[in-house]
Amino acid sequence: MSTQLLLVQALNGLQFGVLLFLVAAGLTLVFGVMDFINLAHGVQYMLGAYLGASFAAWTGSFWPGLLLALPAALACGLLLEWLVFRHLYDRDHLSQVLATFGVILFLNQAVKLVWGTAPLQVPVPSLLEGGIALMPGLQYPVYRLAILAAGIATALLLWLLVERTRAGALVRAGASNRPMLAALGVDTGRLFMLVFGCGAMLAGFAGIMAAPILSVEPGMGDSVLILAFVVIVIGGIGSVRGAFVAALLVGLIETLGRSLMPDLMRLFLAPSPARQAGAALASMLVYVAMALILAARPRGLFPARAG
């Protein structure tokens, strides 16, 4: 494998990691602050992608589609919070898991009903079309770089919000000791709505940005959801910084593993079994990494909860 290909794969990995971070950020805050396991978070990502695709098709351009889809994703998140999730905050984790699974089933099917089962294609916005020469002979799509930049910018913005504002301080306090926060007279109901809305919008944003490079289809949130859970557990539940580091790590492991593992196996095996064993090992790599990290640091890389 050449260094150029390695660089391209590393960039792809980082770009996937950034998308994962946008989904995981909301998940880790909702889990950390509200102690609420929301399996339906992956559906928010899917809804974002569908809303972005529809609005882009309706207005004829990606950008107004993005601008319309963001508040729509926020509205969907708040509606779900009001209809279902709000009634589950004081229930045990298992009840939350079952109820939010019910929401997944409903929304996956509703998406099929509204948009059909065929994957939707979203064209890359014309402003960000084409490639850019990173090195002599190495072209990389501008749009993927734009995703990377947008993701890092959002991460910075979120970091500022959480670390430097009053609302952010409340969120951090909630992640570290929730009963104390409520005892101090903070309206946790409103805080929960704020956190939930932001989380839903971030996941939706990831979905919209992923739409032009991935196919938009029902159930696309399910695989992202499980990786997002891996990310928040590695990073430490409730920690935005941990989610960022872990998301990039998982993105890199997942992408580099897929391209490197089959080559690596070819050193030991014949080409055909090497391809198969390599693919299987590459898929396992993320889980092996999670098991190793948890064995060394049981509460994740950046634990947020006190005590």
Binding site: F31, I37, H93, I226, F229, V230, V233, I237, Q276, A277, A279, A280, L281, S283, M284, Y287, V288, M290, A291, L294, A295, P298
Partner: peptide, 28 residues
Amino acid sequence: AVAIGTSGVHFIMITLAFGQMAFFTAGA
């Protein structure tokens, strides 16, 4: 033997990890 050492959501994720490893092994 490995998973029982953890608890709560970490137990969920470790058992998920072993399950996924078995799943991908079966596929290979």
